[in-house]
Design a protein around this nucleic acid. Sequence first.
RNA 1: GCCCGAGUGGCGGAACUGGCAGACGCGCUAGCUUCAGGAGCUAGUGAUCGCAAGGUCGUGGAGGUUCGAGUCCUCUCUCGGGCACCA
Length: 856
Amino acid sequence: MAEQGTTAAGGATASGYDPQEIEAKWQKRWAEARVFESEADPARPKYYVLEMLPYPSGTMHMGHMRNYAIGDVVARVKRMRGFNVLHPMGWDAFGLPAENAAIKNKTHPRIWTNNNIAQFQRVLRRFGFSYDWRREISTCEPEYYRWNQWFFLRMLERGLAYRKKSRVNWCPKCCTVLANEQVINGGFCWRHEDTRVESREIEQWFLKTTAYSDQLLDDLKQLEGTWPERVILMQQNWIGKSQGAKVKFAVVDVRGAKPIEIFTTRIDTIYGATAIILAPRHPIVDQLLRGAKNREPTAQLKTKLKKLDEMRQTSSKTEDLATMQKEGFFTGRYAKNPFTKKRIPIWVGNFVLMEYGTGAIMAVPAHDQRDLEFCRKYKLPVRVVIQPLKGQEVVAAKLETAFDEHIQGKLVNSGPFNGLSPTDAIAKMSAFAEQKGFGKAQTIFRLRDWGISRQRYWGTPIPVIYCAKDGMMPVPDEDLPVLLPPHPKLTGEGESPLASTPEFVNTTCPKCGGPARRETDTMDTFVDSSWYFYRYCDPHNHKAPFDSTKVEYWFPIDQYIGGITHAILHLLYSRFWCKVMRDLGMVKHNEPIARLFTQGMVQKGGVAMSKSRGNVVGAEEMAQKYGADTGRLYTLFAAPPEKDLEWSEESIEGCWRFVNRVYRLIERHGEAIRSAEAFDFGRSPMSETERELIRKTYKTLERVTNDFETRWHFNSAIALIMDLTNAIYAAEPLEKDVRPEVRREILEMVTLMLAPMTPHLAEELWEMVGHSDGLWNAKWPYLGAEQIALARDVEVEIPVQVNGRVRARIRVTAGSSESDVARVALALPAIANHVNGKRVVKQIYVPDKLLNLVVA
RNA sequence: GCCCGAGUGGCGGAACUGGCAGACGCGCUAGCUUCAGGAGCUAGUGAUCGCAAGGUCGUGGAGGUUCGAGUCCUCUCUCGGGCACCA
């Protein structure tokens, strides 16, 4: 028993409830009975529930804990319903923070990481989450990352992994390249939100996510209704499908110049194009500037070009991009519009992006706002080619905002296409361009291939060897894993640490046996998390990433739970990986995650808990102070799971009180219950008090079941149980009216309902009322027909309204007829006064719910 | 600018398909208990008028549909989030 005053913040409790002792006791018993271990068993229905695997850093706080508490409730409820539940846990153990921390603390990333894992694991165990710990994985172990390498080689064979020199995002603080998905707010590092990424031209490895653009987009439809709408929208947005056309504009008077290809979604406006605008980084710019006339001196333009390119890079705030002045210059060259055959000037503009489309656009100022701004600034002509069907005619000289309506309009000044609707014109003109060979309809995507090379140590080595004679050679499967060298030189200064580790770099060519060099970049850690949930199905397989039969049984994941932060990154990569594995014949499904739930964050002072902000509430501290059960209960009670939760120390005290109240109740009656007779519900007559308590108990159970299984309203489920507990307390003065056998039924129900949320307490209470076989064997108590009948109200209170306003309440037998209720109601003075002298023109009766009299 | 989400007491939040707004918890007030503190127990707690019975107002705002609206429709304001010169 705990010493008084030391258990919880508020001080002692009157009950003998000692969470530290109880929790340790039951955790030990669960482990001994191997309660949470599960195996694939086709004879049983399965349920795979998973919380996103943690990155083991610093301390585990209540924000982490909430995530796992939600998952654990689901896992435990499903187990009580008879499902074969897979509920594993592991560690996203590679990554930059570990490497940086190791440098700072003069230790090895592996040591630092394993220390953190040990800490995290201790806390998770302390909270009694029902994981199958035999399946624990850690992504930094060779046993795991060798399969990253194996997958990489399969992708290499299929052309899904390739090496290319290109412009990539470089974070100067991370000292490494970032994937597009890791660049946020239009140009900032996802880890360092205040650090603008630089653009560098580096040779690096890509995975061809764009090979699956269409599927990644289309298959989102399958997830509608089971994934949060906003996650689907964000992914749609990110993939960014855009239907349009590519059109080639021949360059006039430049010998050997290739035509400039532009992308447009509005080919119907091509007769209104008054300029071609190139991205500052467009490769043809140099060629155009050589020997061109009618413009500023070349040297000056080169300076301008550099400036235009840098403008996007140096703007410190995202908003600047939207409002940034459009700037550019004339190249002195002209292109020929293949539709009009007329010459239009070629410009360079800061608002045209090399990364999107073809890096060149046709400027149609009359029908595109950005083009209008640009052309007005540089006095380029504006030509109207679409007129609205209704309303005022659009006049070029008066245009203040571009007329960019897609649907309503008809073509003018467009030669043979005059009179067509924009939609028809797009189809006809694309076809025309294709027929003539200078263009075609084309769909483009915003999605780029996934750059996975990282110039850091703490990640999976990319299994490739470079030989002077044989060129790039994949490491043969039998040589996997390519191990990280144990003693790297870590400086954190931007050189790939593996490159300066000769014993790693120097190797022999797998083909000719001659001297060769290893690839020294490591993989993005998002590779690790793209398929880890498959490994849980078969975590110790030495021959393959997993056995497909096992995966076939457990997949797809029935319920995945995690933060919204991964709406694009992790969840998009995982979907990609699944499709690749499907095409490799390893899995049969198209989507790995059937249901996704994004839980809210735990905040303190209005911002998410994080070590760097210094506002974390440590999970272990809370377990120490109140016990795991109270900590779990609080995170479930304080807010609905999808909403952010503001941490409140006072509120957790309320949960602590409740837990003690329940404990005291059973402490007080346990003895009597243990020696009580069996009771035949529905047959043996009950006292009024018994009847009321039983009714309330069953009614609560019906609603709590609904809250757990269909609505995920854990907070209101807890409120209902609290309410029931209050009712039991309220009946305590009538203690003698409640036989121990009836009380047993009531208190067992309370215990079972609490079990998914406060599992240790529930086990203890279960034992206290006389069960010796462990609550983990108990099933969720569904009500039988007799019990459902007992849950029904005998008497109901019905509000009586006159013209929609409640004027009285009457108590009647449940199921009373409308006429009976109306007669009783009209006899009441409070009602009669309001009806008095008027006529009841309408009477609405909702059985057992409400009576409304409309008088006039 | 575009796209989502949310606005309910002093606070966190309830209210399943339109049917008693504010469950449950926190906080606060009073009482009991206690040497005291803590804990526990009991009662009260949306605003407003009233001695009371009782009345009036009340779910960001303005309209509408309905016997009846926190819930449905239209417009609007505020906050949070995502995307953003995407051609």
